[in-house]
Nucleic acid binder design. Structure first.
Lengths: 210, 210
DNA sequence: TCCTTTAAGTGAACACAGTTCAATTAAAGT
DNA sequence: ACTTTAATTGAACTGTGTTCACTTAAAGGA
């Protein structure tokens, strides 16, 4: 039997694999930071390589290309986004209040992470559709949270609309409009944004609450 | 006296100037087309140079840099945008109806010219603020149309809101949200977009009409 | 211990980008 | 015919994403 040998070998193999994944994760983390620091248009593979202390070519051992890398960075952002939405939409019994907290969480995330929000929803929308088949990815789960909450609110009778899909599209468009303007337009300072958000909430209440 | 000489000279000078401005205008037109064809990320000065049959360096005789050129292209788009809004918001006496047509014109422009809309409101927002002082530029006039229409509607008593500024922010965010989602998200096909627009109009009516 | 195999990492190159500037060319002025 | 002026550009510089043959070092096997 070659038990000890095989053990040793597999242990080493595992350690190698772990080290590789560690470096991969390190690259991803650093990419996220650098991206936030520099913005989309100034982020480059070569700068990232310099930051982590490897040659540019090394990045291509760990990631297919720049798109692949940024896609994974965005994936992470979507996970955190979805978590926040889920946390906001759960707890409490009044579905209308939950819906309000969901909207606030959406806007807050966008304002706190403008670079990510832009990458997620404004600049690289193609990322949303990359793996063409499945719906299990974080990207789509975020919409599910919204849709589920709206559906619950309609079932509980506090929200009236033609359909859950229609209502969630409406809410999404409203929140997206607010975040987009706020993080892009320089004239939208904090108080103007807050005022807009407050009035949007009132409007949605008047139009959709029952 | 050197009258004839001077006349001849000025005529030639003018012709030269005209030719130069003609070429400049030609470059701008071609840049607009090429930009729509290729999209923001694939548009390049070198491709534009090849298209017009000059060397890349020539472009820098007529324009400071790529930003300067694209800024002027966007300027043109903003002019057409403002014209459309103004045409929609005038004519007819019912201010609420005018406001509705204004919103529809906004969305229609975005859907018809997605490449321009993205450049105007999503990718290069810095263009909105370039010449830091004045408000005479087309960019800002578009907002004026909205603000004026809202103000008129409030004065006529068909729109109730805390202030014209608040109401126009709200309308802008709603329209921008609809356009953004529609031109970026692949799942928003024509009928989903139309449905969203219809419901948004209903919502605005319920919340703001009086 | 020596040799072989495997895999991580990279130097150098390619094509493309925006931009600059000295040199070229052609037209206008004298 | 000579000089001045203005338009145009070739060639270069820096920076980008990406590839691939090559180096280097560790692991496996004798």
């Amino acid at each position: 039997m070659d038990r000890p040998r095989t053990d040793k070998r597999t242990i080493i193999r595992r350690r190698q694999k772990e080290q590789k994944e560690e470096l991969r994760a390190h690259i991803l983390r650093t990419a996220g930071q650098l991206f936030v620091e520099l913005g989309y248009s100034n982020f480059s593979m070569r700068k990232l390589a310099e930051r982590i202390g490897y040659s540019p070519a090394t990045l291509y051992v760990y990631f297919r290309d720049k798109d692949d890398l940024l896609f994974l960075v965005v994936d992470d952002a979507f996970m955190r986004f979805t978590e926040r939405l889920e946390a906001a939409a759960s707890g409490g019994t009044d579905m209308w209040e939950r819906l309000g907290r969901l909207g606030e969480a959406y806007v807050t995330f966008g304002l706190e992470h403008p670079a990510y929000y832009q990458l997620m929803f404004m600049w690289r929308i193609d990322y949303l559709m990359e793996p063409q088949g499945i719906q299990k990815i974080p990207r789509v789960q975020a919409f599910d949270v919204l849709l589920r909450t709206v559906r619950d609110a309609m079932e509980q009778g506090v929200l009236r609309a033609e359909s859950p899909e229609t209502a969630s599209d409406l809410l999404w468009a409203a929140m997206h409009g607010i975040v987009s303007l706020s993080i892009q337009m320089p004239m939208f300072n904090q108080q103007r944004t807050e005022k807009l958000m407050r009035h949007a909430m009132e409007m949605l209440y008047k139009a959709l609450h029952s």
